[in-house]
């Protein structure tokens, strides 16, 4: 073979059977999708948020699992009202109890020494009563 004119020009390419018969319908479908992107893309739009939702759900489930195993079961079965009663602590007198306990361990001499070190005038003390 010396030049191109000696070669047969038959197309070596083929197409699937009925390819051209269905092509027009497929192209029309594609154009409809392009014209109405909202209908087409609902799942695609939600796709990035699905990962976020899955992460939050996984976190909630893991947290629930940890809390369920960490809290004692007898405590879990108790009604809320009982839990509140049993765990109630009277905090109203905490400060004063602490104050008077500390005071009882302090002698009068120590108080006098403390006050004299800071040189507080009697009038000032009386004014703050």
């Amino acid at each position: 073979m010396n030049n191109l004119s000696d070669m047969k020009k038959d197309q070596p390419f083929k197409v699937p059977e009925n390819y051209f018969e269905n092509l027009s319908d497929r192209i029309n479908e594609r154009i409809e999708q392009e014209e109405n992107p909202k209908e087409k893309n609902l799942i695609q739009i939600l796709k990035p948020y699905m990962w976020m939702a899955a992460s939050v759900l996984a976190f909630v489930l893991i947290a629930k699992l940890i809390l369920t195993t960490a809290v004692p079961t007898d405590f879990q079965n108790q009604p809320i009202s009982q839990i509140e009663d049993s765990s109630a602590v009277n905090t109203e007198n905490v400060e004063s109890d602490f104050f008077f306990d500390s005071m009882s361990e302090t002698s009068s001499d120590e108080i006098i020494e403390y006050l004299s070190d800071y040189d507080i005038a009697t009038d000032e003390l009386l004014a703050n009563l």
Binding site: Q11, F13, V15, F20, L23, S24, I27, N28, I31
Partner: peptide, 21 residues
């Protein structure tokens, strides 16, 4: 829509072969 279908049918093969090559 009908016009476009006619256009596709008229030119689909010629354009396909241009692209395919």
């Amino acid at each position: 829509s009908e016009a476009f279908s006619l256009l596709v049918k008229k030119y689909q093969e010629r354009l396909y072969w241009q692209i395919r090559k």
